[in-house]
Simulated scan of single mutants.
Amino acid sequence: MPHSSLKYVVIVSLIALPSWLRLSRTERADVISAEVEPAAAAHHDCHIRWIDAESMTALCSDVMIIDTTDLRSWNHLWEQLRDSSLFAEPYFELVSIVPGIEDGYADYEAELAASDA
């Protein structure tokens, strides 16, 4: 597996703060439309999924799962999000960022096999 084909997954755990919860659902949608969607569109190689977790765990309220093949793009996306009201207001508290490589073991095993050949 060539290095450039590695798929990175970044899991971001967040807690919605009272400042977010006080907003109406329309106001929340406006923040997402004005700040999150343009950031995501600017980094088209980062696919973002937003998961509601508050009814399943007390550890966090929301989870962002980002798939990308370009960690630089992920870094730029994250910088743009950090500059947004999500964190500047703040509307959310960052709990954790967990990066990983999808099927990273397979990439390692392929490299081992290539070095044995």
Rank of each mutant, 00 (worst) to 15 (best):
A29F: 04
L23A: 06
S61Y: 05
I51N: 05
A113G: 02
A117I: 14
A114R: 12
Y8K: 02
D62W: 04
F87A: 03
E102L: 08
Y91Q: 03
K7L: 15
V63R: 06
P18I: 07
A40N: 05
A114C: 04
E54P: 02
I48E: 01
S5G: 02
C60E: 09
V36P: 07
D52P: 07
Q80L: 13
E79Q: 14
P99F: 12
S19Q: 11
W78A: 13
A106L: 13
C46S: 07
T68D: 06
E27R: 02
E93H: 12
H47G: 03
D45M: 11
L81Q: 11
A110H: 11
A110Q: 11
P38M: 02
S73C: 05
E37I: 14
T26E: 07
E35K: 06
T69K: 06
I15R: 13
D52H: 14
A110R: 08
V63A: 01
S73W: 03
Y91K: 05
V12A: 01
E89H: 10
E35A: 02
I15C: 04
T57V: 08
T68E: 06
I32H: 01
V63N: 00
L112A: 03
I48D: 00
I65R: 10
R82T: 11
D83E: 15
D116E: 15
C46W: 03
A88P: 04
A88R: 14
L94G: 09
V31L: 07
F87N: 03
L77A: 03
A34H: 07
R49I: 13
I15G: 02
D83H: 15
W20I: 00
P38L: 11
L21G: 00
A39F: 05
H47E: 11
L112H: 03
M64G: 02
D107K: 06
H76Y: 08
E54M: 12
A113V: 05
G104N: 08
A29L: 10
H44P: 10
A16K: 13
L86R: 01
I11P: 01
D70N: 15
S24H: 00
T57N: 06
L86G: 10
S13P: 00
H44N: 07
E93Q: 13
E102G: 06
A113R: 12
F92W: 09
R72S: 08
R72F: 08
R22A: 13
T68K: 04
D103F: 15
W20T: 04
I11M: 04
L14C: 05
T69C: 10
E35G: 05
L86E: 02
G100P: 09
M56T: 03
E37W: 11
L14K: 10
P2G: 14
I65T: 08
S4L: 09
S73Y: 05
L59P: 02
E79A: 10
D107Y: 15
I11G: 00
H47A: 14
S115N: 09
L23I: 03
E111N: 04
V98G: 02
A58M: 07
S24D: 01
T57H: 05
I97T: 12
D45K: 10
S84P: 04
L21P: 00
P38V: 06
E37M: 10
H3A: 14
M1S: 13
A16V: 08
A110M: 10
V63D: 00
S61P: 08
A106H: 09
A58I: 04
D116T: 08
L94V: 11
F92T: 06
S13R: 04
A88F: 03
A29D: 07
V36A: 12
D107P: 00
L71P: 02
K7H: 07
W74C: 01
S73V: 05
